[in-house]
């Protein structure tokens, strides 16, 4: 590195000059090279259902609810991971797309408790999913809620195996690797080694798994308790963005407040400091603001 060669610009972040233009439902859409079909759909204002996708995680394209039809492709393609290419012709609302989305939602609804899943009910209505048509004998996950500590619970009856928690625990964020998918097929579960309890596992209680779970299968204990008491009222909650009070990283927090009490803490996935990921102190260390013992 010589004086003449050195710039103070980030060489890895030189502006992307190349863009690609694809056709979505007959209309041209231009996005930056490297963006996905989902990005293109979003920029074109098209609502695309997603479950296993999160902007702060590597796409695993496992849930298949975001599939679209690509001219020339034998099968549908997952929009979340498929890179947009020049000249692609994409259909997002064709009968094939609608059918597969409906079936994915229906399949999930037939085996998993989706009652707390974000947005899923809207999509089920939109695509006409009827999980009931597999009959009352249809196999379900059927797992008891795991309550092993005071910070979060795991309710695998609600798990759609989207892998987000595994990614957030592992190489997409925390690098702790306390959990993994285990087993195979319908019997696959997210699990610690030999299903040891979380306190006995490598878990460091960053709660990043809770932060990315789309169905409430991993849930803050505070939320779980309030739901049990029928006192969880998201419509009454305010969300305030602030900065964590602990170390010097500067993680952004979203304080969810109900009845003037903090009820849970999340972090914005689009924030450049930690992309929605926190540690145990940021995610759970807020209790001193409203301790059970009166602050004097």
């Amino acid at each position: 590195m010589t004086i003449a060669e050195t710039t103070t610009e980030n060489p890895d972040e030189t502006p992307i000059e190349t863009s690609v233009t694809l056709t979505i439902n007959g209309s041209p859409v231009t996005v930056d090279q490297g963006q996905t079909v989902l990005d293109a759909c979003t920029s074109a204002g098209i609502d695309t259902p997603t479950l296993c996708y999160a902007e702060n995680l590597t796409p695993v394209n496992a849930c298949r609810v975001c599939v679209v039809e690509q001219e020339g492709s034998r099968t549908l393609v997952p929009s979340c991971s498929r890179k947009a290419e020049d000249g692609m012709e994409i259909q997002t609302d064709s009968p094939r797309v609608r059918h597969s989305r409906k079936m994915v939602l229906e399949f999930l609804g037939s085996g998993v408790d989706m009652s707390q899943a974000y947005q899923v009910h809207r999509w089920m209505d939109e695509y006409g999913a009827d999980p009931g048509r597999y009959g009352p004998e249809a196999a379900r996950i059927r797992e008891d809620v795991k309550v092993q500590d005071d910070l979060y619970i795991r309710d695998y009856d609600k798990c759609i195996l989207c892998y987000k928690c595994v990614e957030a625990c592992g190489d997409d964020a925390q690098m702790t690797f306390a959990i993994s998918a285990s087993g195979r097929g319908f019997d696959a579960r997210i699990s610690t080694e030999f299903d040891v309890t979380l306190p006995d596992s490598a878990c460091v209680y960053c709660g990043n798994c809770v932060g990315v779970c789309p169905t409430g299968a991993i849930q803050f204990k505070t939320e779980f308790d309030m739901r049990q008491a029928d006192n969880w009222k998201p419509e009454e909650q305010t969300v305030t963005q602030t900065v964590c009070s602990y170390c010097g990283v500067g993680c952004n927090l979203e304080l969810h407040v109900q009845d003037e009490k903090i009820v849970k803490v999340t972090s914005p996935a689009d924030h450049s400091v930690t992309h929605g990921h926190l540690c145990i102190k940021g995610r759970f260390g807020w209790t001193y603001v409203q301790p059970t013992i009166e602050r004097r």
Partner: peptide
């Protein structure tokens, strides 16, 4: 520990 001590940490 005046702040973090309030949290019931499993670890």
């Amino acid at each position: 520990g005046v702040q973090s001590g309030q949290m019931n940490s499993p670890i």
